[in-house]
Computed example of a mutant assay.
Amino acid sequence: MSTPHTPASLPSPTSEPGPRHARWLELFFDLVFVAVVAQLSHGLHGDPGWREFAVFLGLYFPPWWMWANLTVSANLFQDDSARRRVVMLIAMLCLAVMAAAVPEADGDRAPAYALGYAGTRLVLLALWWPATRYPAPRTLPRWRPLTYCLLSGVLWAGSAAVPAPWRYGMWVALLLAEMVLLLTARGRGIPGPVHTGHLVERVGLFVIIVLGESVLALITSTDHTWTAAAGVVAVLGFVLLAALWWSYFDFASTAAERVIGAAGTREAYLLARDVGGFLHFFVTAAVISMAAGLATAVEESGHDHLARGAVWALAGGLAAYHAAHALIALRFGRPLREVTVWALPGIGIPLLVVLGADVLAPWLVVLLLAAEAIAHLLYATTIRSRRQTAGTA
């Protein structure tokens, strides 16, 4: 439906910040990320070294970045036309190509990975180009989608013909250029207010995807290693994931909805960009890493200790998870002293577990991390109860 300020031929920008939920197309679109996450997590199984971790982060960021961009476009435009559906399905196909290329994306399948990402940039151009025809003040300067989407897509496609290792340097440079363009825009040209509930829901659904991969890793690894010791490690791993789920959706997502919802249009967009686009990359990457570490812990449950790379994937992942949430809390304006109280133990205890990797049995590693996650949850619950009691008084 057109608005008095928008021609009928253009997708309607959001005009009311009322309740919105993810559409069926968005949920279908997320299925391709189940494959992306599974492929990336598999690359960290066993005893990964620094190269494997670097490749993991490097290959995870482009699909995550595209997911964040497409999520924002769905948030800002209320458009369920056939055109948009076809465009989103094309993006899904491009990301599926990237997922299939992940196992050898640092080798023979790099051209396919680059071409898949190039296709998603062109999809993004198709979604944002109509915003360049909105009447002022909602008009988006045409040079931004032409550079951010079209030029980037052309250069990514061109990188498929560039030999390694120069190809990977080109990827890094292009991603940095995209981020610079986004940061310098500072919300100018945004066609309407951010639907906070929809955005928080979408990010939460992605967190569910990575937690789901962790649960699946526990189940499949237990199936491969059907022993009592593997069962103990799997149960402890599930307790760890359950505590993370509980704390995230009781505290992190509710805080995001409250803070972003109370902000003005541009500030809400900037908060969504920083927290949902940048910092949640580290939140979700940490959980994917933990999924790989948990799978290895189950498979090596009969050993005296875990390989150090597996402990880094698991305990280091938990430390990174807490560090990312500490940065999110600071971005939301929480006092440094308040954040430090829970962030330091949340980061320090997993790192101490890494130091003891050579003497800790797999079940003990997972037990200590699960105990830390439970303590973290209990602390947050206690603080909230005290604040609620004080507010009532």
Rank of each mutant, 00 (worst) to 15 (best):
V172D: 06
Y148V: 03
R202Q: 12
A131I: 01
L174H: 01
P141D: 13
P191R: 04
T139F: 02
L174R: 00
L150F: 07
V203R: 04
V194T: 05
L155H: 04
G189T: 01
Y148P: 06
L127C: 10
C149A: 15
P193R: 00
G119V: 00
G192P: 00
L199V: 14
G187Y: 00
G116Y: 03
R142T: 08
V194N: 00
H195C: 13
A118S: 14
V162S: 01
R144M: 10
T120I: 08
L122T: 04
A131L: 04
G116I: 03
G187T: 01
T120Q: 05
W143E: 10
R121N: 09
R142K: 14
G187S: 05
T147Y: 07
L125Q: 08
V200C: 13
H198L: 11
Y168C: 04
L183P: 05
R142Y: 07
V203K: 02
E178H: 08
W166L: 13
L127K: 06
P163G: 09
A177P: 07
A131K: 01
T196E: 02
V194M: 01
W166R: 08
I190E: 00
V172S: 11
R121G: 02
Y134D: 06
L205R: 14
R186W: 08
G116L: 03
L183M: 13
L140W: 01
M170T: 15
P135G: 09
A118E: 00
R202A: 13
G192R: 00
V194P: 00
A160Y: 03
P191H: 04
P137N: 02
G119A: 05
P165M: 02
G192V: 00
V154E: 10
V207D: 11
P135K: 12
L151S: 11
L125T: 07
V172Y: 11
W143K: 05
L174F: 05
E201F: 10
Y134L: 15
R133K: 13
E178V: 08
L151E: 05
R167E: 04
L146Q: 09
M179W: 14
A161L: 15
S152V: 12
T184W: 04
R186S: 08
L150I: 06
R121D: 01
Y148I: 01
T184G: 03
G119C: 03
H198V: 11
